[in-house]
Computed example of a mutant assay.
Amino acid sequence: MKILAIAGTNSESSMNKHLVTYAASIFENAEVEVIDLNPFEMPIYKHEREVTDGVPQEAKDFAAKIDGANLLLVSLPEHNGTYSTAFKNVFDWVSRIKDRAVWNEVPMLLMSAAPGGRGGAGVLEAATKRFPLHGGNIVETFSLPFFNDNFDKSAQKISNEEKDNELREKIKKISAIESILEK
């Protein structure tokens, strides 16, 4: 199984990159690629820019990574109740690739980690409503609130046993889905 683990941020020290990396490590017998958005930085989407210059190669490269995966692990930070600007820009550009749904129906575990008690509830709500309209096949969602209390950065794992068990149960369920394993 090929897993693409996406931290929906350009932050160098992202809690969501820690979470998605940890989640990916739980899968057995998987080939995992963990990415953040830094290699996919592009000019802010603008219709006139698209008409003049076309879709940037970075957007096509991001789409190719999605297409090469059996499973997507996507962990999104919440900025003012929704996506980070870096993520939204990549999402916008990929949505402009002709004859393509952004997520291309690749099964997805959608996650968010946040320092507060809502655990990225706003961004998860936005994504669960929006992604299916763009080929998002969300199989499970997971939220990690109070990241600094519930994640051990030195051990690179969730330290809250209840939240860790919740994530592991969701991963176990995903791992049993035959269509993910067959691709």
Rank of each mutant, 00 (worst) to 15 (best):
M1T: 09
K2L: 12
L4M: 13
A7I: 01
G8W: 02
T9R: 12
T9N: 11
S14R: 07
M15G: 09
V20G: 06
T21F: 05
S25H: 06
E28F: 09
N29E: 14
E31D: 15
E31Q: 14
E31W: 12
E31L: 13
V32Q: 07
V32T: 14
E33C: 10
V34M: 11
D36C: 06
L37V: 03
P39F: 05
P43L: 13
I44D: 13
I44C: 12
I44A: 12
Y45T: 02
E50C: 10
E50S: 08
T52V: 12
V55G: 05
A59L: 03
K60C: 12
K60P: 03
K60E: 14
A63Y: 08
A63Q: 09
A63N: 08
K65Y: 04
D67M: 08
D67V: 05
G68N: 14
A69G: 04
L72Q: 00
L72A: 03
L73F: 08
E78R: 04
S84I: 04
F87H: 07
F91Q: 10
F91G: 00
D92P: 09
W93M: 10
W93G: 01
W93S: 07
S95H: 11
R96H: 08
D99V: 06
R100E: 08
A101T: 13
N104M: 05
E105W: 15
E105H: 15
L109F: 00
L110H: 03
S112I: 02
A113F: 03
A113Q: 00
A114F: 00
G119A: 05
G120H: 02
A121G: 07
A121W: 01
G122Q: 04
E125A: 14
A126M: 11
A127L: 11
F131M: 07
F131H: 03
P132T: 02
L133A: 15
E140I: 02
E140L: 04
T141C: 07
L144V: 05
F146K: 10
D149Q: 13
F151P: 04
D152L: 06
K153N: 14
K153Y: 12
K153F: 11
K157D: 11
D164V: 01
N165E: 15
N165I: 08
N165P: 00
L167D: 02
K170E: 11
I171C: 09
S175I: 06
I177S: 09
S179K: 13
S179P: 03
